[in-house]
Design a protein around this nucleic acid. Structure first.
Length: 306
DNA sequence: GAGGCGTGGCC
DNA sequence: TGGCCAAGCCT
């Protein structure tokens, strides 16, 4: 199903679309979720906020926090005026709270460097804290309708199956994947942006990691993995994310206390979240080093005011 | 490039 | 029941 299987364009005619574009986009038109960041009234800032929150966090958990965030800080400058700790507090239990700090930092940078408007250029987006290759392409594509290869875990899985014929993509994004994604990108901007959203949604709803639903897939007939009989993943399993008993868990417990507190918290109160003193101290030091927690005199701690 | 970084739901 | 998974980024 690679691009080489596309029909040869007639001489003088525009390039024929890849055989995947039309069915995937038609499926998207019929089945896309009505998510707030996809509505017409969602501007670039709303798209950007959603992308930060969706980094490793499921849609259903993002939705309520996203609504509160946009209501409170409708423009980047509104967030930039706040202490970073307020962003961490409002982040709630979305997880990976450094994202909140980075989103705040991005809002400050947008206010200072871009006149308060989310930049349009991929390179300028990439220069903002918390924005990597994926998020820069996603904002440029979804918010500004530009033509970019948007390679997230969903798209990578769809391509791994449809094009490479394997169940899962490699652990880390490869040059071959980027090349394929660029090759599959429709020529014109609006179609490319539509394709990016559609291929992602297909991976999120149908071509899922577990319990994929090939019967509802609009490209199952062209899918190399399906045609090969859906062979299971070969090789080592992906590195698991241990959590219980790790510093991460301790950090989470400490920060949960500080998020709920309206006044600086004595260390003695924080000490109650974890028995083991060495790990507890290491976790707290890590939070301070990351700028997520601000130490005060007399062993008091709070979310950062600066 | 591997490892660190939250949280909660699901099968 | 607990390992796996969820629109990554940074060092």
């Amino acid at each position: 199903m690679t691009a080489t299987t596309s029909p040869t364009p007639a001489p003088g005619a525009p390039d024929a679309p890849n055989v995947l574009h039309a069915p995937v986009i038609a499926w998207f038109d019929a089945h896309a979720r009505d998510l707030p960041w996809r509505r017409p009234d969602a501007g670039p800032w709303a798209v950007m906020v959603s992308e930060f929150m969706l980094q490793q966090t499921p849609v259903n958990r993002v939705l309520p926090v996203y609504e509160q965030w946009l209501a409170r800080w409708p423009r980047p400058a509104d967030l930039a005026k706040e202490p970073p700790g307020e962003a961490v507090r409002a982040w709630g239990r979305l997880g990976y709270p450094r994202r909140a700090l980075r989103l705040h930092g991005a809002a400050v940078a947008i206010t200072e460097r871009h006149g308060g408007d989310v930049p349009r250029q991929h390179s300028q987006l990439l220069a903002l804290p918390g924005i990597g290759e994926y998020t820069a392409a996603a904002v440029a594509s979804f918010a500004y309708g530009q033509r970019h290869a948007v390679l997230d875990t969903n798209v990578r899985r769809v391509f791994a199956r449809a094009a490479a014929g394997v169940q899962y993509p490699p652990n880390a994004t490869t040059a071959a994947e980027r090349k394929l994604a660029r090759a599959l990108l429709p020529e014109d901007e609006p179609t490319a942006a539509r394709w990016a959203a559609a291929s992602m949604e297909l991976g999120a709803l149908v071509c899922t990691a577990k319990n994929e639903d090939c019967a509802r897939c609009p490209i199952s007939a062209q899918c190399a993995w399906q045609r090969a009989g859906k062979p299971p993943h070969q090789g080592p399993a992906r590195r698991g994310q241990t959590y219980a008993g790790t510093d991460r868990q301790v950090r989470g417990k400490l920060l949960a206390v500080l998020r709920e507190a309206v006044a600086p918290v004595p260390q003695a109160v924080l000490d109650r979240v974890w028995d083991e003193p060495v790990q507890r101290a290491r976790a707290l030091d890590g939070l301070v080093a990351d700028g997520l927690v601000e130490p005060l005199p007399e062993r008091l701690y709070r979310l950062p005011l600066s």
